[in-house]
Computed example of a mutant assay.
Amino acid sequence: MSGGIAAARLQEERKAWRKDHPFGYVARPEAAADGSTDIFTWKCLLPGKEGTLWEGGLFPLTLAFTSEYPSKPPRVKFPPGFYHPNVFPQGDVCLSILNPEKGWRPSITVKQILVGVQELLDQPNVDDPANECYHAYKRDRKLYDRLLQEQTRRYAAAKQM
Rank of each mutant, 00 (worst) to 15 (best):
M1E: 14
S2W: 12
G4R: 13
G4H: 14
I5G: 00
A8H: 13
E12H: 05
E12F: 03
R14K: 11
R14T: 11
A16Y: 13
W17F: 08
W17H: 07
D20V: 01
D20Y: 05
H21W: 04
G24Q: 06
V26A: 10
A27G: 08
R28M: 04
P29W: 05
P29G: 01
E30W: 02
A31T: 15
A33K: 10
D34M: 10
G35Y: 07
S36T: 12
T37Y: 00
I39W: 14
C44D: 04
C44W: 10
L45E: 11
L46P: 00
P47C: 02
K49A: 15
K49H: 12
W54E: 04
W54T: 06
G57F: 01
F59N: 02
F59A: 06
P60M: 02
L61V: 14
T62Q: 09
T66R: 14
S71P: 00
K72G: 14
P74Y: 13
R75Y: 11
V76T: 07
F78R: 06
P79F: 07
P80R: 15
H84C: 12
H84T: 03
H84D: 11
H84M: 09
G91M: 13
V93D: 04
C94F: 10
L95F: 10
L95N: 00
K102F: 01
R105K: 14
K111L: 09
L114S: 05
V115A: 15
V115L: 15
V115E: 12
V117S: 04
Q118I: 01
D122G: 15
P129K: 06
A130V: 03
Y134G: 01
H135K: 08
Y137F: 13
R139H: 14
R139L: 09
L143P: 03
Y144N: 05
D145A: 13
L148Q: 12
Q149N: 04
Q151M: 14
R153L: 05
R154W: 02
A158W: 09
K159M: 01
K159E: 00
Q160W: 11
M161A: 12
